[in-house]
Design a protein around this nucleic acid. Structure first.
Length: 767
RNA sequence: GCGAAAGUGGCGGAAUUGGCAGACGCGCCAGACUUAGGAUCUGGUACCGAGAGGUGUGGGGGUUCGAGUCCCCCCUUUCGCACCA
């Protein structure tokens, strides 16, 4: 220990020592209770930003805390190293994506090490290396075996800037998740993973994690899956044997249906309109809707055309006109609805525009009415003018035999009736669509299938994995996968007939890598399996996962799906991969010349370079500041003066330790001691702080943890005993306070804590 | 439009189950040390008031011995979803 606090010296000293002793390497055979602390693996863009620093500082604080509590902690890191930016660099600057990626990893690894994050570097992984991505391919084939991977032509989301297809999750809100460009619709043949097969479980299993995940994230996932209970109803068609099937959640309103409305893409339209004079009109309309949608614009107004076809309401026998309209989506439900203007806002808007009848069949119900005997059978005049849809549940009126029943009673009874009479049944639908994983890109894991003229699509046999990505390709930026231009890759042999065959030239979505990467940390060098299930069992599920909330419905829903799949093929024995999730807040900074705080970015010029902060204040102070300045889930506003304050604290502690070092490095005599009231107060504060820190860290209230340490230190300062003159009892109280403080400071500022611990006469480090 | 969450000093934010509002830090003010201070240390710092004292957790009402915390209405902000039948 030097007299003065020089973070640079202290930090490099301890980083080197940790590295040499390998204290952060987790052992599989350690008998202590395990704790798996995981941060979302970064994309190797080349530079760490403050968001990363915050993420890793939080994870590191928790890891240290658990280690100091005696847990066997696994704290790994790796690289999400496939993806767009490497390829953009290739297109713009002619560099090889692999070289660019590897260089970036080297640089960012250095930055992480300068931050002193306690990773187990022996388990480092990178998605772009064949020893990793061959298991992406292995999983893909396993899904193919189980019919959970399939290829089909469909209208997909296309990002014109990145020139690739995106999944629904990645184009939520009609914009590309990465670059914000409005997506277009294109018809392409694509690979899909059948996440919809797990839709029910993705909702139902939320129960298992609701105590550990932010409510917000679970709500978004639940909304994204979009489970909806209702019924299918088949409407007969006049002068036809066809039936039009609709999905409704409000079968109780069926007597109020005054039209059937179909999506312009509905496959039944062709047949229904065969020979009709209106066929051309409908097709023209469908064309217009289609081109409007392809442009990515949202439709401004509801529009439709009457098809001239008549449908029959199976409950009332009434004839209803069949319309086609832009507000009915083919992707949801059955692509056709019954239009009930009186009780649905969209139907109301449509009916008003096209003068369709509006008929009230649900009356508002009050508690008095529920109690009243008998309830009213008709309320109001069916033709009464209704301007606004009444969408609540209520009591049925104008509904034949079903009148006077409450919605809650009528809904199950009417579904059962429909089923009994063969024109419908209760049903559950989901909003979530299958996960489109084909990408027309080079820098990803190749889809492991080949096409043979004789045998058609043939999966690459497991023993021929990996399908290795070629060294390079021509990056023309034309929108076609660059792999298609590499003959040595494309041309291959059919595994079945050994005749000539062509490889699939698309690569997989990088979200495939991140769906299971944290299982690979458990067994990172396994050459015969993605991981050994027995080893995985010791470490998983993840105890704490930390990352940004931008992944609430991308990565985090995919990885839940993937885990359930791994369970089904016997690799894991649980349903949910992550027990506790923390979605940390963004790091923002003032935008020059304004009062606004926005996420740090190059284009806004408000970025802060972690390396510069480390240089100026040290890694400890930088970490201390990001943990102290705001609760972990809040936005963190960068403050230059704030980090100075965070620098002062460890320095003041350091100075105090220096003053007491000599007196404290000799052991106190044991035996009974008389404590002064001041010494007793200090001891009380020390123990109160230990209690507070323990519960705060457990709950990741890191800002208040740091505050508690500062409070303890203020009390130590107030105690103000002179080391030279202090009594044995005072020295005892001081030792207890300072040693406790140093230990408790470790999760936030580990380098200086280790240095002070050593200065207090403890050789061999804190662990 | 629909849904959710949140409103506490100049700022970031504290405040088990309803029990001393403003912990801790930044900033600011004063003092000490200094040739100097944008270093360091000490003290002060919610607001009004010279003071005694009074007022205070977005606004209004309510429950309670007691409300930042619970209930109702309103306002504002942020986020999410946007024709999901």
């Amino acid at each position: 220990m030097d007299e003065k606090y020089f973070p640079e010296q202290i930090e490099s000293k301890w980083q080197e020592r940790w590295n040499n002793t390998g204290v952060f390497q987790a052992k599989d055979d350690d008998p202590r209770e395990k704790f798996y602390c995981l941060e979302m693996l970064p994309y190797p863009s080349g530079f760490l930003h403050m968001g990363h620093v915050r993420n890793y500082a939080i994870g590191d604080a928790l890891s240290w805390f658990k280690r100091l509590q005696g847990f066997n902690v696994l704290h790994p890191i790796g690289w999400d190293s496939f993806g767009q930016p490497a390829e953009q660099a290739a297109i713009k600057r002619g560099v090889n994506p692999r070289d660019w990626t590897e260089d970036n990893i080297v640089h960012m690894r250095g930055q992480m090490q300068r931050l002193g994050i306690s990773y187990d570097w022996s388990r480092e992984i990178a998605a772009h290396r064949p020893e990793f991505y061959q298991w992406d391919q292995w999983f893909f084939l396993k899904m193919l075996d189980r019919d959970l991977a399939y290829k089909k032509v469909s209208q997909v989301n296309w990002c014109p800037k990145e020139e690739t297809v995106l999944s629904n999750e990645q184009s939520s809100g009609g914009i590309c998740w990465r670059c914000g460009t409005a997506v277009e619709k294109r018809d392409l043949e694509q690979w899909f993973l059948r996440i919809t097969a797990y839709a029910e479980q993705l909702v139902a299993d939320i129960k298992q994690i609701e105590d550990g995940w932010p409510e917000k994230v679970l709500k978004r996932q639940s909304d994204w899956v979009g489970r909806s209970e209702g019924a299918y109803i088949d409407f007969g068609v006049k002068e036809s044997k066809q039936k039009i099937r609709v999905f409704t959640t409000r079968i109780d309103t069926i007597y109020g249906a005054t039209a059937i409305v179909m999506s312009p893409e509905h496959p039944l339209l062709n047949e229904l309109l065969e020979g009709s004079a209106l066929k051309q009109d409908v097709e023209t309309f469908a064309q217009r809707v289609r081109s409007q949608r392809a442009s990515g614009r949202e439709e401004e107004e509801k529009e439709g055309v009457n098809t001239g076809v008549l449908a029959i309401n199976p409950f009332s026998g009434e004839s209803l006109p069949v319309w086609v309209a832009n507000y009915v989506l083919m992707e949801y439900g059955t692509g056709a609805i019954m239009s009930v203007p009186a009780h649905d806002e969209r139907d109301m808007e449509f009916a008003q525009k096209y003068s369709l009848p509006i008929r009230q069949v649900i009356a508002p119900v009050t508690h008095d009415q529920i109690a009243a005997e008998p309830p009213p059978t008709t309320a109001g005049d069916a033709s009464a003018e209704i301007k606004q849809a009444f969408t609540d549940y209520g009591i049925l009126i104008n509904s034949g035999d079903w009148g006077a029943k409450l919605s809650s009673v009528a809904i199950p009874e009417m579904s059962a009736y429909a089923k009994q009479h063969g024109f419908g049944e209760a049903a559950v639908t989901y909003r979530i669509r299958d996960w489109g994983v084909s990408r027309q890109r080079f820098w990803g894991a190749p889809v492991p299938v080949v096409y043979c003229d004789k045998d058609g699509m043939v999966p690459v046999p497991y023993d021929q994995l990996p399908v290795v990505l070629p060294q390079t390709a021509e990056f023309t930026g034309t929108g076609e996968s660059p792999l298609a231009g590499v003959p040595g890759f494309v041309n291959t042999e059919c595994p079945k007939c050994h005749g000539p065959a062509r490889r699939d030239t698309d690569t997989m979505d990088t979200f495939v890598d991140s769906s299971w990467y944290f299982f690979r940390y458990l067994d990172p060098r396994n050459e015969t399996a993605a991981f050994d299930p027995n080893i995985a069992k010791q470490w998983t599920p993840v105890d704490q996962y930390i990352g940004g909330d931008s992944h609430a419905v991308m990565h985090l829903i995919y990885t839940r799906f993937w885990t359930k799949f791994m369970r089904d093929i016997g690799l894991v024995d649980f349903d949910e991969p992550v027990k506790r999730l923390l979605t940390q807040g963004m790091v923002t900074n003032r935008v020059e010349g304004t009062d606004e705080y926005k996420a740090m970015s190059k284009s806004l010029g408000n970025g802060v370079d972690p390396d510069e902060m480390i240089k100026a204040f040290g890694a400890d102070a930088t970490r201390l500041f990001v943990l102290f300045a705001a609760p972990v889930e809040n936005e963190l506003r960068w403050s230059e003066t704030g980090i100075e304050g965070a620098f002062r604290f460890p320095r003041r502690v350091y100075t105090t330790i220096w003053r007491w070092q000599e007196r404290l490095s000799n052991p106190s005599p044991t035996g009974a001691m008389e404590f002064s009231p001041e010494a007793r107060a200090l001891r009380r504060k020390t123990h109160q702080t230990i209690a507070k820190i323990t519960s705060d860290l457990e709950q990741l209230h890191l800002n208040t943890s740091v505050a508690a340490l500062m409070e303890l230190f203020n009390e130590i300062t107030d105690f103000n005993a002179d080391p030279a003159k202090a009594s044995e009892a005072d020295v005892f109280a001081m030792r207890e306070a300072l040693e406790s403080l140093v230990i408790m400071l470790t999760p936030f500022a580990p380098h200086v804590a280790e240095e002070m611990w050593e200065g207090l006469g403890h050789a061999g480090g804190l662990l």
